[in-house]
């Protein structure tokens, strides 16, 4: 068993997902099962392998560093759950 309930709570907080006590218990079992299963990767000798950073050998394309769109504040806030005057509204962050 890789993961205890405390760890589940810690990563749930890192992932910004609230979990109930019952959920943490169930997740402990599920996540440990998946990670135990993934442990078989330790059988593989990877001493000659670089970690893959791109799946196809290509250099990242570049474009000219110029503004090519903008002036779309309406579109950007259109789907916001709460907004005012082209600002997103959130609960108070700074006292």
């Amino acid at each position: 068993m890789e993961i205890d309930e405390k760890t589940v709570r810690r990563i749930a907080h890192l992932a910004r997902i609230r979990v109930t006590d019952a959920e943490a218990k169930a997740l402990k079992k599920e996540l440990s099962g998946i990670l135990d299963w993934a442990k078989q990767l330790n059988e593989v000798d990877t001493s000659t392998a670089e970690p893959m950073t791109r799946v196809t050998p290509m250099t990242l394309k570049r474009r000219t560093d110029v503004v090519n769109d903008g002036e779309m504040a309406d579109a950007i806030v259109k789907n916001a759950p709460m907004s005012a005057n082209h600002f997103f509204l959130v609960p108070k962050v700074v006292e």
């Binding site: 990670l35 993934a38 990767l41 330790n42 593989v44 990877t46 392998a49 670089e50 970690p51 893959m52 950073t53 799946v55």
Partner: peptide, 13 residues
């Protein structure tokens, strides 16, 4: 986990 898996991915390729 993550780095190991990315190395295995190189071997698969």
């Amino acid at each position: 986990y993550y780095l190991k898996a990315q190395k295995v991915r190189t071997l698969i390729r």
